[in-house]
Design a protein around this nucleic acid. Sequence first.
DNA 1: AGCTGGTCCTGATGGC
DNA 2: TGCCATCAGGACCAGC
Length: 274
Amino acid sequence: MPELPEVEVVRRGLESRIARASIGGITVREPRLRWPVRADLPSLMRDETIESVGRRGKYLLLRCKTGTLIVHLGMSGQFRLLSAADAPRRHDHVDIVTSAGVLRFTDPRRFGALLWHDARAGDLTLHPLFAKLGVEPLSPAFDGKILYRASRGRSLSIKQMLLSGREVVGVGNIYASESLFRAGISPRARAGSLSRARYEALAVAIRETLTDAIARGGSSLRDFVGSDGEQGHFQLDCQVYGRAGEPCRSCTTPIVSIRQHQRSTFFCPACQRR
DNA sequence: AGCTGGTCCTGATGGC
DNA sequence: TGCCATCAGGACCAGC
């Protein structure tokens, strides 16, 4: 579910409400997530104060004094702040009880993760999960030059390069298709074959696509839910994703669906060129 | 039965 | 031959 815009929407929703909240206790009902939730997480985080809520790529960061809780929503995760703890239901795996309410982690597919990073272990940017991540697409440091340079000599498709997260983070399967449409680039183009100018256009397209989605409250696939349980609306605004056979909104040519690297890709064969 | 938002890991491939 | 980077595929799950 969650690509960068969804995670950012959750982050913003939580930040204003739980920054400086104290943690009373943690209940782990199901530790078998992508990686097992460590058994001592409750004792590690009890009495901690959440200093801020950050984000790196699609990872949420609950920063506390002695460390940081790294949260990933996987494909189907939700992280909601409940004012009153209603009875946990199926797939409600973890509750973090805070002075601002109960933070509940829900994830049917269990591709998500909750990892504690001890501050004494050093800078978070050195964490194995973060060490090889690309630049943040909404930061000033992100531009076409970064993509262009990284792409030289690479034979993989431009769509796969975006999905890899190695050059730029946060672009998932939906926004990869949407960004390439906005930039007029075929998802099948070899990364190494695109010009500097086209990467400049792509960088702009990525930033605009993600910014628009955030402004709409997160995209949301059928079931995206923000930190307050609100649904996003992006699916209504997709230009190509999920629109196979439907007319391109720009030129009316039917949108085409293909498989790339085991993932679905949507594009307009007329508007998007190699 | 086959599809679905993410991403780590393993093993194959190819260049030097 | 060996090392390295790159790339493809499988794996993890439940719900529809």
